[in-house]
Design a protein around this nucleic acid. Sequence first.
DNA 1: TTGATTTAGTGGTATATGCCACTATATGGA
DNA 2: TCCATATAGTGGCATATACCACTAAATCAA
Lengths: 165, 165
Amino acid sequence: MKSLADTSTGPANSWELCSNSAIRRASRRLGQLYADVLAPSGLRATQFGLLTQIRTLGEPTLRTLADALVMDLSALGHTLKPLIRDGLVTLAPDPQDRRARRAHLTRKGLAAYARGVELWKEAQSRFDAQFGKKESAALRRALDLIASDEFAAGFTVQKIAAPKK
Amino acid sequence: MKSLADTSTGPANSWELCSNSAIRRASRRLGQLYADVLAPSGLRATQFGLLTQIRTLGEPTLRTLADALVMDLSALGHTLKPLIRDGLVTLAPDPQDRRARRAHLTRKGLAAYARGVELWKEAQSRFDAQFGKKESAALRRALDLIASDEFAAGFTVQKIAAPKK
DNA sequence: TTGATTTAGTGGTATATGCCACTATATGGA
DNA sequence: TCCATATAGTGGCATATACCACTAAATCAA
């Protein structure tokens, strides 16, 4: 396998040129690898991520959850549908703000999540083993940065400040 | 914005823990940013990537294209539908292998691609400016590695060799 | 040659995700 | 108080992407 530090060869293909295509491509691959490992839990990789966020945030409103996931609010609503249908998640109105709905994990949802965590640990440790623990952590930091609002603001501001230059 | 090299703070959130969730999240964000820039071309970011690959590979069979994109063959077929419907791409049977179909860019497809390229350059240069040119290249190498068959093989082999351990 | 197996694609179905239009609720003034 | 605006969600529609079952064609083997 080509080392990460190897810059000797030129761009072997166009993926090394377009950040967006490259990240989608890697996303598809990694999604498959994680999906295979998580399959016994009955959860898709994305669903596991969703449950994890709900768990982490407590009982977030959909708005909060969508922001944390850097996801469109309506997309989140759609994505939650199967989980609600299968009884892993419920939505309850927020008494403080009657527009809002808060996501809860049901007992069944917690159980699925617990199974998922065990499998996820396996997947993550394989990833770290294959990619390098240090590199893995660095990659996640980089991805976290790209996903941040600050990054988007900086990217977009350039458009306004210098539309064509 | 937090520097990439900054390891002083602990995991601020669960994204720094799960590579798969992190990459999907960054993917969503970056997809939005590129989509906004590419919008005037009438192409989605994914569609631009698709046209680029077809262009790069010549007149690839769907199988070849799917492999290059690390995409399921049937998913590719579905994704191509809008482009075929809109007359940007055509599929022609391969005389050598009558099972295969080769993707071609039409004149209209080439024109859309050309418009896309100009916009893409703008997006890519904004990305490089925001993320750092060197870091950007390194990131693409890392993503390319993750997407590679070798990476997948190494990841999967661990399952067989050491199921739990 | 012919039958078993593999490979390329297609169509159906399901999830993932985005945009837009619309409703309900909250909020910030005049 | 009451209206203008902003915010939270929902539903419809479109694309992105996966799996499965199925067909057609190529390939391999006896």
